[in-house]
Computed example of a mutant assay.
Amino acid sequence: MTTTAKEIKYNHNSVTISEIKKKVDFTVLTPKKIPDYWTLDTKTTPWIMLHYMDSNDTKLMVAIHQSRGSTLSEAELPPAQQVDINGNKGYFLKWVDSGNVDNNGEIITGGLLRWIQDGTYIEMNSSRLSEEKMLEIARSMK
């Protein structure tokens, strides 16, 4: 179930999003619609990385990487499906092995989603979430 996150549960002694925002010179966007049982592991080098983990902190559910960005050219990307994210042009690319079973017995789904919003380049990837769920999370980022 996807809900509006009220309090983020950080793991691994992560730096908080509030602390990250004070250290960077671009807008750090965070999803507002994520399951309330996910935890967050943040990393700040070389990108701002938000890694949302399952409640057991064993599976990466979705990774969201951010940096300063101004343009995103179709010519620079492999062929991808164009999508709209909050009025911004985004690109979604399914994994090559989508639909196959991984080493843990799970079906690979999702892919790589890229867009620029408020001057921030964002890359989201997941092998556990569907394209629809990834787009829902992306569209909730503020």
Rank of each mutant, 00 (worst) to 15 (best):
W115G: 00
M1Q: 12
S127D: 11
K89M: 13
L113H: 08
P35G: 13
S140T: 01
V101T: 15
K9H: 10
I8T: 05
D54M: 06
V28H: 00
S126C: 07
P79C: 06
L40F: 11
K23Y: 06
D102E: 09
L40I: 09
D57A: 12
S140K: 00
G105P: 10
P35C: 09
S70E: 15
T71V: 11
G87K: 10
I116E: 07
N88Q: 15
S126M: 10
K23W: 07
G111H: 00
A75Q: 14
R114P: 12
E7Y: 12
P79D: 07
T120L: 05
T2D: 02
D118T: 07
K23F: 06
L72W: 13
K94M: 03
L112A: 04
K22W: 02
I137T: 04
V24W: 07
E76P: 01
V62I: 15
D97Y: 01
S67H: 13
T4C: 02
A138C: 11
I48H: 02
K133R: 09
E19D: 15
Y52S: 01
A5Y: 04
K94F: 03
V24K: 11
K94L: 04
M53D: 02
E132Q: 13
H65Q: 14
T120D: 03
D102A: 06
K43V: 04
I116A: 12
E132N: 12
M61K: 05
S126W: 13
K21W: 06
M141G: 03
K9E: 10
T16S: 15
D118L: 08
T4H: 05
T39M: 07
R139C: 13
R128S: 02
